[in-house]
Simulated scan of single mutants.
Amino acid sequence: MKNPRLYLRQILEAADFILETAHSLQDLQSSKLIRDAVIRNFEVMGEATKRLSPAFRVQHPQIPWRSLAGFRDVLIHDYDEVAIEVVWDVIQNSLPMVRLEVARLLEYGSDLG
């Protein structure tokens, strides 16, 4: 198993990209390039989450690991049914907290190896 720090950095970088790229719902609706880039970065976040050990995820319940991994699965497998408004809602209401908690773990986490 690789060092969790690697996967946390991937999650943080993807979250930063999304927050810096998607400025509005209109951005997502009007630009396929932005929409695809944002969705791809959510997929990276979910995949990196899945690569963290179950024990690590249990030790850090402040981050909604199951939701991150589940959102990735929905975006990949049910891509034709995902409303862009749902993606925007996640960006607005969940992603800033996830980003903050992952950044805190990277900065202060003593169990990261």
Rank of each mutant, 00 (worst) to 15 (best):
D16C: 07
A37C: 11
L25I: 15
E101I: 03
L52Y: 03
G113V: 09
P64D: 09
P61G: 12
P96I: 09
R5D: 08
L52P: 03
L68S: 06
E107K: 15
D16I: 07
Y79M: 12
M97N: 14
V38Y: 02
D73W: 01
H60G: 09
P61V: 08
A48R: 00
A55W: 06
R66I: 09
E85D: 14
Q10E: 15
V38T: 05
H60T: 04
L33N: 09
A15M: 09
R66N: 07
S110A: 15
R40M: 13
I76N: 00
F56P: 07
E107I: 02
V90E: 00
M45I: 15
F56C: 04
L8S: 10
S94F: 06
D89G: 02
V82A: 02
D27F: 02
N41C: 09
D36I: 08
I63S: 11
Y108Q: 11
D73H: 08
D73F: 01
Y79S: 03
V82T: 12
E13Q: 13
G109H: 06
L19I: 09
M45P: 06
V86C: 08
H60Y: 10
P4S: 08
V90N: 06
L68M: 15
Q26L: 02
E85R: 06
K2F: 12
Q10D: 15
P96N: 09
E107D: 13
L105S: 11
D36C: 05
L95T: 02
K50T: 10
R9W: 15
I39K: 00
L100A: 12
E20H: 14
D16M: 11
V44M: 03
I91H: 04
S94I: 05
S31L: 01
I63R: 09
Q92S: 10
Y7M: 14
D16W: 14
V44A: 02
A22V: 11
W65M: 03
L95P: 00
E13M: 10
R57M: 13
L33P: 00
I18R: 01
E85H: 12
T21K: 02
I18E: 04
L12Y: 09
R57K: 15
L75P: 00
R72E: 07
E43H: 02
V58C: 10
P64A: 03
P61A: 15
P64Y: 10
V98E: 00
A15L: 07
I34N: 09
R40W: 12
M97F: 08
L100M: 11
F56E: 01
A14N: 04
E20T: 08
I18N: 05
G46W: 07
L19W: 08
L52K: 00
R51Q: 14
I91Q: 02
L95Q: 02
E101L: 08
L25G: 07
I39P: 00
I63Q: 02
S24E: 13
S30L: 13
M1Q: 06
L25M: 15
P54V: 14
P96F: 12
V87K: 01
S31H: 14
I11K: 07
V98M: 04
E13T: 13
L75Q: 03
H23E: 15
P54C: 15
Q59N: 14
I76T: 05
I84N: 11
N3A: 10
